[in-house]
Structures are given as C-alpha cells and as structure tokens.
C-alpha cells in the first residue's frame, strides 16, 4: 500500500536532489518525505471515518443515553467508549463536565469520559497506525479505554462530590431530568458528509504543522542518533524510567500530533515502547492548562486527586506495555 511513497521519496532524494544514499542528510530527508506523506494520508482516512461515526453520537445523545439507561456497572466502560468517538477539545471539557453532572450522571462516569476522550482520539489513532502499525494501535486504544474505565471507577469509589465547587454542588442537588433535544437525528448521512469532510480537513490543517515539525525533529534524530543510544539510560532494566517519563510528561501540553513522531524515533533508538507510551499518555491525557480550566468546577484537592489517579494508571499501563512487548 505504501510502496509508491517509498519510490516517490527515493526519486525526490536520490534522483531529483542527487543526494548520496547512506549519508545522514539524505537518510533524514528520505525519512521525512516518506513519513509525512504516509502519515497525512492515514490521518485523513481515520479522521474522516471517525467523523462519520461521531455524527451518529452527538454529545447530547451520549448524555441522554447515560442518563436514561441503567447499565449495572458497565456505564464506566460505555462512557469511556463514547470518549473515543467524541472529538476532544480541551476548551469544551468544562461545559461538558457540567452538562453531564447536571444530567445526574455520576461523577466517576463523567471522569471516565473525560479521561479517555483526549487519550484516544481520531488524530492519535491515525498517527499511531502510521507510526507503529495496527497491532500496537489496537493495544493502545484498548488500554486507553480500560484506563479511563478503571480510573473512573477508582475516582467514583473515593466519593469526591464534596470537593466540587459550590455552584456545581448546587447543580448536583437539582439535576434536570428532561433530555436535551437531539436535532441531528433526522439529517441523512449523505447530507452530513460535506460537513464531516470539511471538519476533517479543518482538523488536518490544524495538526499539519505539528505533525511536520514532529516528523522533522524525528527525522533529524533518526539520522543522527546512533541505534540503541537510549538503551543505557532508559532501557527495560531501569525500573524508574516509566514513572519518571510519565511525571515529566504531565505538565507538558501538546496534542498527539507533535509528540508521536518523536516517540516513534525514541522507540526505534532503544526506549521501550511502554515507557514511550506512558510519556505520550502523560502529555496528551493530562496537562496544566486543562487543570487550570477545571478549577472552575473542582477544588484544587479534587484536581490533584484526579491527576494523581490518572498518573498512577498511566504508569501501570506503561509497565504492562513493557511486559507485553
């Protein structure tokens, strides 16, 4: 499927630019061209397909579903899965949080949704397929969903409702039972496609610079860092590698697009996959700006507990990844 890109990159680097194969510069450039084209292509396919799925699950419908169905413990998993198909924007997280709480959805279930949504989204999945292949991608998606589910259950069992800010607590006491209307139900898919298409293009345009910069940095590292360079510092023998890289990653704020191409090169240079993925989850899943936004609805203590629980879950899944691979 990707051979033509390989040929194209060969042609540009060795024929058009007349660079010698084997040199650092030409290797790095070849890597950059090949990866950019392949990844943007896969990204578009995944973003577009996820857009179609998402158009069947507008957020209001997700909320109504969670409000009206007794799921006997499965609600965490369901919320987490909804988190996958809902595109995430950190600025929507607070309105979404309040909307869920106001609808009487338990706090833990809301957390399950909030945790999975940034962790497993269409951009991350598209990049993951391009960089690591389908097998690693499915394991990542699966562990992201499980992580959201389990962290939501833990947060629920801690009974944190008291730590919400006062105006949110007031809302908890008089939750509304009426469903918000879902307008998009009547529109047939054929009419939604143009909107989905232009949304996909918008998302791609938004992430394109990050992806290209990420791949460019990755390309440089790929050409200049020797194989196995990181193994001595961050290899599997170092038990602290996973927690350290996770904790370093939490304050960092970036969407998956810039981080992933770099992570892929780190893995090819000897950092274990689990350690790299823990780092990646820390960057996309939790961030200080998100914490600041959540201050409107949660006390600092609650934010700290939320971040703490999710960080622990990420560290554990990092170890699990390292054991599997």
């Amino acid at each position: 499927m990707f051979e033509w890109i390989e040929h194209l990159a060969d042609w540009i680097v060795y024929d058009l630019l007349q660079l010698h194969s084997g040199a650092h510069l030409s290797e790095a450039l070849h890597f950059f061209i090949y990866d950019s084209i392949k990844i943007m292509m896969l990204l578009f396919i995944v973003v577009f397909l996820m857009g179609i799925i998402n158009s069947y699950f507008p957020i209001e419908r997700v909320r109504n579903y969670l409000m009206n169905h007794k799921l006997y413990g499965l609600e965490y998993l369901v919320a987490s899965l909804f988190g996958v198909v809902t595109p995430f924007c950190s600025c929507s997280s607070v309105p979404l949080f309040i909307g869920f709480v106001r609808g009487g959805i338990p706090l833990g279930v809301t957390f399950s949704f909030l945790i999975t949504s940034p962790l497993v989204n269409e951009v991350a999945i598209g990049l993951f397929i391009g960089l690591f292949g389908l097998k690693v991608t499915s394991i990542y998606v699966l562990s992201g969903v499980l992580l959201g589910t389990i962290a939501g259950m833990i947060l629920h069992s801690l009974q944190l409702e008291n730590l919400l800010t006062t105006w949110v607590k007031d809302m908890l006491n008089n939750t509304e039972q009426q469903n918000s209307s879902v307008a998009s139900e009547i529109i047939p898919l054929s009419q939604r496609l143009p909107v989905i298409w232009s949304e996909a293009m918008n998302i791609l345009k938004g992430v394109l610079p990050y992806v290209l910069i990420g791949i460019a940095i990755g390309g440089l590292m790929h050409g200049y860092i020797p194989e196995g360079f990181f193994e001595q510092y961050m290899g599997k023998d170092n038990p602290l590698a996973v927690p350290i890289s996770t904790i370093l990653a939490v304050p960092m704020y970036s969407n998956a697009s810039g981080v992933l191409p770099i992570v892929q090169v780190l893995v090819s240079k000897g950092i274990p996959l689990g350690t790299a993925i823990a780092f990646m989850m820390g960057v996309v899943g939790l961030s200080l700006p998100e914490g600041m936004l959540l201050k409107k609805v949660m006390s600092l203590k609650l934010i700290a507990i939320y971040f703490g629980v999710v960080t622990c879950c990420i560290i554990i899944s990092g170890y699990v990844f390292n054991i599997i691979f």
């Binding site: 924007c89 929507s92 979404l96 309040i98 909307g99």
Partner: peptide, 8 residues
C-alpha cells in the same frame, strides 16, 4: 452554562 451547551 446558562445556555445549556456542552460543546463550544
């Protein structure tokens, strides 16, 4: 939130 929206 007075307008009851969940996505901005």
């Amino acid at each position: 939130m007075k307008y009851n929206v969940m996505s901005t």
